[in-house]
Design a protein around this nucleic acid. Structure first.
Lengths: 147, 147
DNA sequence: CACTTAATATTGTTATGACAAGTAAATAGG
DNA sequence: CCTATTTACTTGTCATAACAATATTAAGTG
C-alpha cells in the first residue's frame, strides 16, 4: 500500500480506512442495488422492526434527517413500509416488506464474509482487542463532544 | 455510551467512530471556519505545496473531483492559490497563501491535542498496536478492491 | 383545562464522496 | 509528424452527513 500510512495520525487512518471499507461494501452490494448505509439500516430493521424513525436513528448512530432520507430510499425500493403509529400521530412505525426481509437474509452472509476477509491476519483475540480500542476511542470522543 | 456497540461488526464500529471523530473535529475547527476535510488538505499542503491536484488527491486518499471541490473551498477562503504549471498546461500547482500557512501553524497543535484526547487510556505501545491493526485492515481492503 | 415545553418528522443548506462523462493537453506508436 | 491513447482537470449526479429551522403532536405544569 503506502509506506507512509502508518505514520499518519489515528484520525487520518480511521478516516481513510472507513472510506476504503465503504468503497468495498459499495462494490459488493452494487448488484443488489443497495448502498452500504441503506444496508446498515435494513440490517437493523431485520433485527427488530416496527420501531419509529427516531429509534432507528439512535440504533444506527445517524441523525434523524439522514435516517429519514435513507428510509425514503428504502421505501422507494419497496424494501420497507411506513405505518402510522397507533399511539403517536407524529410517528411512523417502520416495517420490512417481504422483499426487504428476503434481501436482508440474502445480504447477511455477504456482510459476514466481508468482515472476515478484512480481518485476515488477525485471530479472534486480536479482533476483540482491536474492537475494544475502537470502543475506547468512541467513548473518549463522546465525552469530548458532550462537554 | 451504548453497551451494544462492542457487539457490532468491525465495519459498523469503524464507520460510527469515524463519524463521531468527524463531528468532534468539526466542532473544534468551527471557529476557524474550516471543515475537517479542508483541514486535512491544508495540512498536506503545509507539509509540501507546489504540487498539482492529482498529487494532492493521492496524498489525501481522495479522488480528483472531491479534491478539486475542497481546493475550491480553500481558494474561496484565500488559504491557497492555484498557479499554472510551467511544464504542463493542463495542470495547476497549488500553493498555500500566507493566510493558509498561518492557519496551518495555528491548527497543527489543535489537531495533535485532539488525537491525544481521543487516545486517553492507551499507552504508546497500544496506540501503535492499534494503528498496525488499522493498517492491516486497510491493506486487506485494498487487496479485495483491486481484484 | 390552558399554556409552555418537548418530541417526531420534515425540509433546506452545505460539504463530502464516488462514479461517469466530458474537455483539453501531453505522450506514445507507427 | 500524425493519430491514438493517456493524463489532468472539470462538471454532473446521487447518496450520505450534520446542522438549522419548521410544523404538528404529545407531554408537563400551573
Amino acid at each position: 500500500m503506502k509506506s507512509y500510512f502508518i505514520h499518519e495520525s489515528i484520525g487520518v487512518m480511521i478516516a481513510q480506512t472507513y472510506r476504503k471499507l465503504n468503497q468495498l461494501l459499495f462494490l459488493r452490494l452494487k448488484e443488489y442495488e443497495i448502498t452500504p448505509e441503506q444496508w446498515s439500516v435494513l440490517y437493523r430493521l431485520s433485527q427488530k422492526d416496527g420501531i419509529n424513525q427516531r429509534e432507528i436513528a439512535i440504533r444506527t448512530s445517524k441523525d434523524q434527517p439522514t435516517t429519514k432520507r435513507i428510509l425514503d430510499c428504502l421505501q422507494k425500493k419497496n424494501l420497507i413500509e411506513k405505518k402510522m403509529s397507533p399511539s403517536d400521530r407524529r410517528a411512523f412505525l417502520i416495517y420490512l416488506t417481504d422483499k426487504g426481509k428476503h434481501l436482508a437474509q440474502q445480504l447477511l452472509p455477504i456482510e459476514q464474509k466481508i468482515m472476515a476477509e478484512i480481518s485476515v491476519g488477525m485471530d479472534q483475540a486480536e479482533i476483540n482487542q482491536f474492537k475494544n480500542k475502537l470502543l475506547l476511542i468512541s467513548e473518549n470522543i463522546n465525552t469530548l463532544i458532550n462537554d
